[in-house]
Design a protein around this nucleic acid. Sequence first.
DNA 1: CGTTTATGTCAGCCATATTGACATATTCTG
DNA 2: CAGAATATGTCAATATGGCTGACATAAACG
Lengths: 185, 185
Amino acid sequence: MADINVLTLSSRPLESGSATAEHGQAQGPAFDLIELLFFAYRDFIGDADEVLARLDFGRAHHRVLHFVNRHPGIRVADLLDVLKITKQSLGRVLRELVDNGYVVQRAGPADRRQRLLFATQKGEALALELALLQTRRFARALHECGGEAREAARKFLAAMIEPSARADVEALIARADREAKNRPR
Amino acid sequence: MADINVLTLSSRPLESGSATAEHGQAQGPAFDLIELLFFAYRDFIGDADEVLARLDFGRAHHRVLHFVNRHPGIRVADLLDVLKITKQSLGRVLRELVDNGYVVQRAGPADRRQRLLFATQKGEALALELALLQTRRFARALHECGGEAREAARKFLAAMIEPSARADVEALIARADREAKNRPR
DNA sequence: CGTTTATGTCAGCCATATTGACATATTCTG
DNA sequence: CAGAATATGTCAATATGGCTGACATAAACG
């Protein structure tokens, strides 16, 4: 945090002399990328918002349902850890998902204090519908970019994640994929 | 403890074979990309959050300050249009920015009903500090990806934007860049 | 002149998050 | 086994940042 001021005070972006050559923005703020990510994420989220609104659900419900569906049997504590919210915040949202039959809770087989979370068929269907909407947006975008775009996008997005958290996120994704693969349907 | 410590750092097992050849995952949801974007955006936003929290500002203040700084003299109505919020929502946030000396309002020279918005030097400094934090994240990520990554990322992010809105966003960015270039400092 | 426009403001509501305190099972441990 | 620790739930109060609706004011426009 100490070096923030150094950068702030020293680098005057985009001097009028058009000194920014070639690929530009070597030192100035990447306003274009910042704004593109802002708008891209808004529209990415917007896909799901429309469907959710019809069910009187919000983004909070989406996040919970998504991770419960991706990690069947996830413990409440782990879900809180992934979402980085408090149990009080999770409370209402989870109750509504349970009350409306999208999620069920079952006591842990070994540790009966645990309330393991599972998406019901209904919950699974909704999670899939939402994921497919967003997948379609990715597919369209990547198709426009062509070729190696998928792997490039994957790498880029992973690189944007805080380095200290990246391994955990990658592991989380890998584990969910692996478990899904081994889950008989 | 809530460990998500599954230590496999292996990248996603791509289905081998030619069924999902071209762009992979032709039919299934792209859970990996969805989650990577979720976590990437969270960390991207988190950079600014820390600074803002110290000033008792939130993301709403950031968004307003960002666009005011990028478009000096922007009208309230246009700001509402960019942010897609109501004037009532803008109200409190804008007042706090003005009260704390980050933004000033001036009557339009031609139409005195307008209250054109400008970032003060203080506001400009904060906007730049925040933008540079986020720029550093982009720079690190793009450096990791190497080569043509910046243009690829730009293209990808633009492609993720709702097609009907994309031209407007691109024009917005282009205009801000053009005006910044012609603005003498 | 009257209407429209640009903006502001008051009041109330909703969703989602927070902290803190406390309750209830259940498991673990000395 | 008793007591500590753990997993979860819940009540209450508060903050933030959205929303709608109604109304106010000043300036521009026709």
